[in-house]
Structures are given as C-alpha cells and as structure tokens.
Design a protein around this nucleic acid. Structure first.
Length: 270
DNA sequence: AGATCGGCCTGGACGC
DNA sequence: TGCGTCCAGGCCGATC
C-alpha cells in the first residue's frame, strides 16, 4: 500500500513556523517571482514590504506585512520552504521565490496543492474565515467543543477535517486522536464525556507531534531539510492490518468522506 | 443553509 | 521493461 502522506497539519506547520520565523521576521521582501499557478493570489504585492510577525492559524502561516497586508501561506500536501545555500539549490518544483534583503527563500511544492495570497490584514475567506479555535490555546474549550459536535449530523471524523470545530487537525491526527479517545470515526453527535476525551486526545497528539517536529513519511520536510520524528509513534494512521496497540485486533482501513481512515473496529466505539 | 461530491495535481507503487 | 491504473488528500466550488 502506498503511503505518500506526511502532509503538513498543525504540528508540521508549527515546526516550519519555528524555523522560518527567525529568518523571515524583520526582513524586507525585495521581490517575488511566482511561476504561474492558480492557487497564488496577489503574491507580487508582497514585494517591497517588510515582514513583521510570522503567526500560524491552523495549517496556515500568516506573515504580517507593512501597509496593513498579510501574506497567507498554506503548504497543501507537499509544500515546503527552503533557503538557498549549500544545503539547498532550487529544482523544477520551486513555485515561488522570495528575495529577502539578506537571503533567498524558495517555496517548493511538487503537487501544487499549496497556496500563497497577499490580502488586507484579517480579510479571510473560505476555510480560514470559518476556522475553529486553536487546539492548544485556551480558546479550545471542552464544553464548546461538545456543543459543536452536537450541532452537526456529520460523522465525527469528516467534521474534524472541516476545520470548523477545531483548527489544524488533518487526516493523520484525526485518526490518531480518535484512536486514543476510543471513538469510532463514524460516530455522530457524541456525548459530553466522550467529547471531553476527544478534546484531550486532540491536544495530546498535537502537542506530542510538535515536540517531535511533525510526522514525515516522505514529502514533509522542515526549513532545514530535516524530517519530523513522529512517524515512529503513530498508533493508527498508516497502520492498517497491524495489531491495535490496545486490543491486538487488526486495524482496518476504510474510506470515509473520501479520505482514507484507519481505526480499530473493536475498541473504537460508534 | 448545511452536507456531499468531484476536481485539482503529481510521483510512486503496483499489476500485467 | 514499459505502460496503464490507482492512490495519497486539503480545500474549493458546484450541486443536492
């Protein structure tokens, strides 16, 4: 079975942010070259502007620019940032290049699912505009999370992937958190007690993955070119057919909401 | 208006 | 060996 994942979710994007911030903040973007691509919007407007803080919201990186603008960056499936140097020279998959006053930064993205946009600060649309609370902040409240889960008829996993109940959870960490909370990905309108278990599991799996600088199967890499160390700790995602770490029954892979989903049919209850 | 589904995009794994 | 098919999936727009 092909496991091409390792897509950037919250822990991977946060790891990128931590490496990118000290080399991007307080720099001036001299100019931008972008190979045409439908997911870039007004990227050239970043030229000539100074970068303020580099923040993260969910899976998005947000660089404050002077003039009341923001540069929004999403890594998609295969996006990465690399600074030119002995360790990195551009290849055919570089989709945009930011020439800073003291460095050259490439945005590389084999599958072109990533996006870049310059927008007036705070003027968001789509997923970013409807994004749920940051899971590792106090804004992520168990009671509100329970109410959100009660408010929809969707199965819990596709609902998590919508980014509305909580920001930054993608396919890997949805499977991991549901396994840890012993909740079936097919469960609907789950009760207060189990909602709180899932709330805690989401925070745990994300915090642990950040400590390990993310999950790399193949594509995801950090700004320094290194891989994350979390793949060895996965308990569900990518483990189909292997014994469940709790009960020993084989983990099953199904399609749910169009996404590969691995879970334990025995100890994850609907 | 909320839920669902197809399209985007490419390289790698796999089968014959 | 080589070619065709399938798979990975976040987000968005169209449709129900």
């Amino acid at each position: 079975m092909a496991e091409t994942g390792g897509m950037p979710e919250l822990p991977e994007v946060e790891s990128v942010r931590r490496q990118l911030a000290p080399r991007l903040e307080a720099r001036r973007i001299e100019h931008v070259t972008a190979v045409w691509q439908s997911r870039f919007v007004d990227v050239e407007r970043a030229a000539g502007r100074r970068v303020g803080r580099l923040r993260r919201r969910g899976k998005y990186l947000i660089a404050e620019l002077d003039g009341g603008l923001e540069l929004l960056m999403h890594l998609g499936m295969t996006g990465s940032f690399r600074f030119r140097g002995p360790q990195w020279q551009p290849d055919a998959y570089v989709r945009a290049t930011f020439t800073l006053n003291d460095a050259v930064l490439d945005f590389r993205d084999v599958r072109r699912f990533g996006s870049l946009a310059v927008v007036p600060a705070g003027q968001y649309t789509g997923t970013l505009a409807a994004l749920g609370p940051e899971p590792l902040s106090d804004d992520f409240d168990p009671a509100a999370f329970h109410r959100a889960l009660q408010s929809t008829s969707m199965a819990v996993k596709p609902y998590l992937l919508s980014q509305r109940p909580v920001a930054g959870v993608g396919n890997i960490y949805a499977d991991e958190a549901l396994w840890r909370a012993r909740i079936s990905p097919f469960a609907r309108r789950i009760g207060r007690r189990r909602a709180t278990l899932l709330w805690a599991a989401i925070r745990e799996v994300l915090a642990e993955a950040i400590e390990r600088e993310g999950t790399t199967f193949r594509d995801y890499q950090m700004v320094n070119g290194e891989s994350g160390r979390n793949a060895a700790y996965l308990t569900a995602y990518g483990q189909a057919g292997l014994p469940c770490g709790r009960c020993g029954d084989p983990l099953r892979k199904v399609t749910l909401g169009g996404r590969g989903t691995t879970y334990c049919p025995r100890c994850q209850r609907p």
